[in-house]
């Protein structure tokens, strides 16, 4: 009897080890169960919310679409260049994340401006170079008002809107959203909090492992 308990305990401990090493990030957002018949059996599958197709102009005035993010994981946020509240803190933190994954072809960064009128690509270019960003691993994009505010609310679940009562006229949340290669949302982190940004970096490693295994 004792032996049985011991073995059960040991396997439990073993199981828990396996579970932690294979920990997966949750899939966030809306989900929908779908019934499918596979080989004569009725199966229930879940369809998760994904980011739809998009097309913007980046800091080099080059079109950037969802295809540029195919087979990559990416971190996205909403900001504007003249913002002096949470944006500097967010991008000070994002810069740390960028520096950590700089040059990794499987990781990209996507910052949407919500100041449609003022933040034209030339403005974004000057902002990016002042932040020390070259190349296009980190895209700063400009789009139409509806597409930016729409994708923020519906696809990335980030609140961003124009508000005439705000001193700067624009209000937005500071979330960093982690998106996987299937364009599913895998994490949301407060970009103004250092501990959450550190968690993001750990979760990105985890997601890279899940998506690409150990391939380099």
């Amino acid at each position: 009897m004792k032996k049985v308990v011991l073995v059960a305990l040991a396997s439990l401990i073993f199981q828990s080890c396996i579970n932690t090493s294979e920990k997966k990030l949750p899939i966030l957002g809306e989900r929908e169960p779908v019934e499918k018949t596979v080989a004569g059996k009725l199966l229930i599958d879940t369809i998760y919310q994904t980011v739809p197709a998009f097309s913007y102009f980046n800091q080099d005035s080059i079109p950037v679409t969802n295809k540029d993010f195919d087979n990559k994981i990416y971190v996205t946020d909403f900001f504007f260049t003249s913002c002096n509240t949470i944006c500097p803190i967010m991008h000070r933190n994002m810069l740390n994340v960028y520096t950590k994954f700089k040059g990794n072809p499987k990781v990209k960064f996507l910052s949407h401006t919500i100041d449609i009128k003022y933040d034209l690509p030339s403005k974004l270019k000057s902002y990016a170079s002042k932040l020390g960003i070259e190349g296009n691993q980190w895209e700063f994009v400009h789009g139409s008002r509806d597409s930016i505010f729409g994708i923020a609310a519906k696809s990335y679940l980030v609140s961003a809107f124009e508000d005439s009562t705000d001193p700067q006229g624009l209000v937005h949340q500071g979330w960093f959203i982690l998106v996987d290669t299937k364009k599913q949302l895998r994490g949301a982190y407060d970009g103004t909090k250092e501990d959450q940004v550190n968690q993001l970096m750990k979760d990105m490693e985890l997601l890279l492992k899940e998506e690409f295994g150990n391939e380099k």
Binding site: P88, H91, R92, L95, Y127, K130, L131, G132
Partner: peptide, 8 residues
């Protein structure tokens, strides 16, 4: 007090 890049 280190600012940020050449932005601040």
């Amino acid at each position: 007090g280190k600012g940020l890049g050449t932005l601040y």
